[in-house]
Design a protein around this nucleic acid. Structure first.
Length: 448
RNA sequence: GUGGGUAUAGCUCAGCUGGUAGAGCGCCGCCUUGUGGUGGCGGAUGUCGCGGGUUCGAGUCCCGUUACUCACCCCA
């Protein structure tokens, strides 16, 4: 078979890279569970009608079909999910009778989109979602809660660059627009959303040309969108624009509360700010909206987004309002692996390589390995009984820090191949320093 | 879906106006007969993405194609 080439948009990692990704996933799961979120997994596929509810994204859906499909449509009427929110909404409706509300869950899974790949954008990728969903009502303090959980998680991912979490509130925007007499609020939001990439003047032109605003209104829309603050001082700035609307008041109050309630979690590495340009393209958000930028990778766009959705799920008798955030695990990890020296301290979990004197005595080496494993020390026995120099090189290639030797007289010695130190050791008692026990995430040399 | 770029050794790439395929790193062996790394010496490896065309001759020029990649769209 000819050498296979990589499939664009379907990233695969080397073991030392996968270790980094796994550390991210483990940290997220740990944090989510610390906050009492239950883990679930939904199937990879959803009926097409569920997936198509989200509008534009529908053209990105991968359909499933049997090779010998006989239905008229040529497919099975199901497709791979493109996010975890839509499957979750379906899951809640399906299991509403068995779940406790408010229901708090996390979900870390693959999703698929048929988009053209780019840096940080894939056709198959891992997302980590947290959502809280209520029956018929969900108090606003849960908006605060999911924000605090995600900020906590980002803080614990301390081997990654910093993050800037940007929050806004759709009620605030829609109230402001309504107060200005704008009809097509969705189109205006879509254009305003370009502010991070397109210069203000261009956005103003677009607001006039595409959203049909007059120049004066466009300027006021932009005045709102350029307001930013790391505390609730933005409220005064918005008031100063002189627009009045009930929804605007509601949105301002919520956003101010959210920013204030998270102030104690903010650090130099993980910041939170009210950014009134954030709107989110998706139309199901009804209140709080989030986006998150990774320091040094701002051009990649948001790596962690979400918001409040009051009407995504309904079964006719009840509605299930929710609030959630989704972190793009692949989107963060893969570009960092490619562009920086982020990697694992070794290529294998083994902290010890047990040397083999000759093939006849391999069983003795296996016994030593078993003794170490019984005390939870990851280790492996060398693949072939070559010269000891070769066996040490076997360990060195893999980054295994210790090699275990057995002398002719049956005595045991362990060598730290980084320092060259070799000391007598007891298979039943020797323990590596805790920092060596597991591979570590580290930044190899400083390129860039 | 639209527009640009690239494709040569395991990896990163060089190869001028066409003349039999190169470097660095890595890999293997020996110096080093059972303890690696540094050093010295030696060695192996290519359908030059694929198909066609022009030419005495194509990695090089032309056409097509596929893959990868970047930007737009949209988004994690």
């Amino acid at each position: 078979m000819a050498k296979p080439t990589p499939l664009s948009g379907f990233p695969e990692l080397l073991p030392e890279q996968r270790f980094v990704e796994q550390q991210v996933v483990d940290t997220l799961r740990h944090t989510f569970e610390l906050h009492g979120f239950a883990g679930i997994e939904t199937r990879a596929v959803e009926p097409l009608d569920q997936l198509l509810r989200k509008g534009d994204t529908s053209k990105e859906v991968y359909l499933l079909r049997r090779l010998h499909e006989e239905s008229a449509e040529g497919h099975a009427g199901i497709g791979l999910h493109f996010d975890l929110t839509v499957p979750f909404a379906r899951y809640v409706l399906e299991n509403a009778g068995k779940l406790e509300f408010p229901f708090r869950r996390y979900q870390i899974q693959k999703a698929w989109r048929g988009e053209r790949p780019q840096e940080g954008r894939f056709r198959e990728f891992t997302q980590a979602d947290i959502d809280i969903i209520g029956r018929d009502e969900l108090p606003f303090h849960h908006d605060v809660e999911v924000t605090r959980v995600m900020v906590d998680a980002l803080t614990r991912l301390d081997f990654l660059p910093g993050f800037r979490v940007q929050v806004n509130n759709r009620k605030l925007i829609q109230g402001f627009y309504a107060g200005l007499g704008i009809d097509d609020t969705d189109e205006v939001m879509r254009v305003v959303d370009k502010l991070d990439k397109v210069p203000v003047d261009k956005v103003r032109d677009l607001l006039v040309a595409e959203a049909g605003l007059d120049e004066k209104t466009a300027d006021r829309v932009l005045s709102l969108a350029t307001i930013r603050a790391t505390d609730d001082s933005f409220v005064e700035d918005v008031r100063a624009l002189g627009v009045e609307h009930e929804l605007l008041d509601e949105g301002l109050a919520e956003l101010a509360e959210l920013v204030s309630a998270c102030a104690d979690l903010v650090t130099d590495r993980v910041r939170l700010e009210a950014d009134l340009s954030i709107a989110r393209g998706l139309d199901y958000y009804t209140g709080t909206v989030f986006e998150t930028r990774l320091d040094g990778y701002e051009s990649m766009g948001s790596i962690c987004s979400g918001g409040r959705y009051d009407a995504l799920a309904t079964d006719g008798r009840s509605t299930y309002p929710g609030v959630g955030i989704s972190l793009g695990v692949s989107r963060v990890v893969v570009p960092l692996l490619a562009r920086t020296g982020l990697t694992a301290s070794r290529k294998v979990p083994s902290v010890v390589l047990v040397a083999v004197v000759d093939e006849e005595s391999r069983a003795d080496s296996n016994a030593i390995a078993s003794a170490l494993r019984s005390r939870d020390i990851p280790c492996e026995v060398v693949a072939s009984a070559q010269k000891f120099g070769k066996q040490i090189r076997y360990a060195e290639r893999r980054g295994i820090p210790y090699v275990w030797f057995t002398n002719a007289d049956g005595g045991h010695e362990i060598k730290d191949i980084r320092s060259g130190d070799q000391v007598a050791a007891d298979p039943a008692a020797w323990t590596p320093p805790s920092e060596d026990l597991r591979p570590q995430v580290l930044m190899k040399e400083t390129e860039l």
